[in-house]
Design a protein around this nucleic acid. Structure first.
Length: 321
DNA sequence: AAGGCGGGGGT
DNA sequence: ACCCCAGCCTT
């Protein structure tokens, strides 16, 4: 095992130097943009993040700007990225950095880990990329690489962490090593691996195996929900929106009032929005009466942080700017 | 240990 | 169609 490690520690960095992608967050060691990129990249692909990353840094160029911004401005910049809790925790963490760390992003691993929205893997990424700390990253890419390399397709997360930490202790440059492992998983050791191009294939227990390891066991069921979306339209004030609860789907975003339908209505849905584990059947209803409850009129929908599914529904009614 | 949380790209 | 993505937080 130790021999495998030392071989990998030499070959992978050399492969990375030749094949790494030129990504904007790899051009800096400033923790603020690195932090933003890491949060955006949680369960979100590089291609999706790229345009949002530039727009975000344009809108919130530093921690102080983010900390003093309105939550709605933060959510609006996050619109369409999903997992909106990330945006709320990013905002909260910026405020905490102002209060607890004098506006300076902390450089100690445990202080980074203590920030909202930052777990062990993201803390390891920031600490190694920006401060050269010997802490491992274990994301989806690294897990896939290690499970194959060790030929332990069912390895527990704790075992993978142990392996990742052992490697980070042996490597020459922790920042380079973490980047290289992720890059290998993202570009070579994919769901269908390209073993012929892999620098570790000689010592990989799964290399060139005919059947790629099957990942999932029982497939999760898709929940089908039918939601009535109540559209209160005012000739002058626009559309009535309510803020959704902080926790749960579309947390803190703005949305027309929604009621849950126990039975699917006879009419076809205006829009079907598919998420990872739900299908939302949306039925729009024009409401002539004044709305009840807490909310606000919105004239310019392009300025509100709306869920993508609702934005699409409104587009069908010619309501979005 | 398990479940909730979005939206989009790849195949 | 289905899988997966630079995961984290709560229970």
């Amino acid at each position: 095992m130790t021999a495998l490690f030392s071989t990998a520690c030499k070959r992978l960095p050399s492969w990375y130097a030749r094949h790494k992608r030129d990504l904007p967050w790899r051009r800096t060691r400033d923790p603020y943009p690195v932090w933003i990129s890491e949060i955006m990249l949680q369960q979100t692909q590089v291609k999706t993040v790229l345009p949002r990353y530039h727009a975000w840094l344009d809108r919130f160029p530093d921690i102080a700007t983010l900390a003093t911004a309105d939550l709605d401005a933060v959510l609006h910049a996050w619109q369409g990225l999903g997992y909106y809790r990330r945006a709320r925790l990013l905002h909260a963490a910026a405020k905490r950095i102002m209060d607890w760390h004098c506006g300076q992003f902390p450089n100690a691993f445990n202080d980074i880990l203590a920030l909202p929205g930052i777990g062990r893997s993201t803390a390891g990424a920031i600490a190694s990329f920006c401060f050269g700390a010997r802490h491992a990253v274990l994301d989806g890419n690294v897990k896939r690489v290690l499970r194959r390399w060790l030929d332990r397709p069912a390895a527990r997360e704790s075992a993978l962490w142990d392996c990742a930490e052992r490697l980070i202790r042996q490597c020459r440059d922790p920042a380079e090593w973490n980047q290289a492992m992720m890059e290998l998983g993202a570009t070579v050791c994919r769901r269908i691996p390209h073993c012929a191009h892999c620098p570790l294939s000689e010592h990989c227990a799964s290399a060139f195996r005919a059947t790629p390891p099957t990942s999932a066991e029982g497939k999760p069921r898709i929940q089908r929900l039918h939601w009535r979306v109540h559209l209160h339209l005012h000739p002058e004030h626009g559309l009535w929106l309510e803020r959704r609860p902080r926790d749960g789907i579309w947390g803190n975003l703005w949305c027309p009032p929604i009621s849950v339908l126990e039975q699917p209505p006879k009419q076809p849905p205006c829009h079907i929005h598919r998420l990872t584990h739900r299908e939302l059947y949306l039925y729009a209803a024009m409401e002539p009466d004044e709305p009840r409850g807490k909310g606000q009129w919105s004239r310019k929908l392009s300025h509100a942080a709306l869920p993508t599914g609702i934005a699409r529904l409104l587009q069908c009614h010619g309501l979005t700017a």
